[in-house]
Design a protein around this nucleic acid. Structure first.
Lengths: 237, 237
DNA sequence: GGCGCCAATTTTGTGCACAATCGCTGAGAG
DNA sequence: CTCTCAGCGATTGTGCACAAAATTGGCGCC
């Protein structure tokens, strides 16, 4: 198991919000779980800390962050600033092919929502914003947007009341329409109000059920990955 | 010499553009220079790599990046996206005190420019953008803006023709006026055109003179720091 | 004379062992 | 009964030694 794999597994686990806040990620414990040396885990942990997916406390170790609503406010405000800038840029620069791609996407969102396929809709809903970031064609903006969107995903997984999220599709469509119509001001407004609305859907529910243990989660991820890795060469050969 | 100090010294050196591109930063060499173990340097180097101030090549080591103009285009585009979003936000949210603070700043810029004090003006000019980022009150935006502005500083130090930079003060003032007048659209436009203008001032001058060696630069920084550190306690006591 | 290959050297990557630091627990005093 | 402080256990931080990889120089061959 190399360093990149471990990083991917842990970041996926963190972003999926599978772990409640404040959980300690001991170096030795993870080293045993992954079957690698402590130094490798150490490096990954510090990298995750630098990516703000973990909190590293000097001489204490790595802890999963408890994304409270106060932090949520900050992240969403940052997203409004960045993504409204993106929207303005895109309204001026989208190609016809990109507009069509967006059209397909919002249609797919609506379709998933109509079917009541909440899992697919949630995934597509997040992807909409990733897609916009991609369409700027700017790797820096993509990275920054990716970081912010990922952080809100952690929040949504934890705090969003699923009932209220069924109306979000129209908001994306409004953004799309403004972008397709090259209406810069309208696109910015639509983006801002959408993000504000998503933020207000976050409810301060107390963290209730303790999920599976870290060991189980990591083991499951490793198993899934091993199965996938084993399958790919066979299929490719 | 602790890790934070080394990181600060090296990043200051890198951001000041004192080193031409592609220079290799050997671990052992730096360890000797700073008089610390190789592992400490190693950690700092990887951190700088993650902050995109260095390029880390696996099994090859750390190299200073050669910020070419193609990358400059990307960074300035990202800045336009982010900082136009900031401008829109600030136009809606600036307090009176913040407006006055900005007024002071642009006045100071004009004063430095009038005096022909180019060093001060350049510093103030960069600080104007840092100041705007600060005024969003959003730590995430501050970090992202800081990273982007720092990267452009490296570019400017290397490529800007000093002759053309004397007209930049009015651009900042235009942004300020729009912000103070709460004119969101105008502020966004002023910010975008300012950043575009700064970008066009970059000229593809061939990297000519090789500056002082890495050893000399680091030694100078260490000396300055030691002197400063020694002076502060005395002055404070 | 140029090209390619092999070996030696230099440089980075990794695991290990020890040192330092922090939180916790338990005993003792007020 | 509570508060404090000291010792202890656990965990992270750091330096060292070894292993792996790449570059460079030289040598032989075409």
């Amino acid at each position: 198991m190399n360093e990149a794999e471990i990083h991917e597994i842990l970041s996926r686990l963190l972003l999926a919000g599978k772990l409640s806040g404040g959980v300690k990620l001991g170096e030795h414990r993870l080293a045993d779980l992954f079957g690698v040396s402590r130094e490798r885990i150490r490096k990954v942990l510090h990298r995750l800390g630098h990516e703000r997916l973990l909190e590293i406390v000097k001489n204490r170790g790595a802890f999963t962050i408890e994304p409270d609503l106060r932090e949520g406010r900050i992240v969403y405000e940052a997203r409004r600033i960045l993504e409204s800038g993106m929207a303005a840029h895109l309204a001026d620069n989208l190609t016809q092919a990109q507009v069509e791609r967006l059209q397909q996407h919002v249609d797919a969102e609506a379709e998933a929502l109509r079917r009541g396929d909440q899992a697919t809709w949630q995934a597509l809903s997040a992807e909409f914003h990733f897609l916009l970031a991609e369409m700027t064609g700017n790797p820096i903006v993509q990275r920054q947007a990716h970081e912010l969107i990922s952080r809100t995903l952690m929040l949504v997984k934890r705090y969003e009341t699923t009932a209220g999220s069924t109306c979000g599709c129209e908001e994306h469509r409004a953004i799309f329409r403004a972008l397709a119509g090259r209406e810069r001001g309208k696109a910015v407004k639509a983006m801002n109000s959408h993000l504000s609305l998503v933020e207000t859907r976050l409810r301060p529910i107390a963290c209730v059920a303790e999920g599976p243990s870290l060991e189980e989660l990591v083991a499951a991820e490793i198993a899934a990955r091993r199965a996938g890795d084993a399958a790919i060469p066979v299929a490719a050969a």
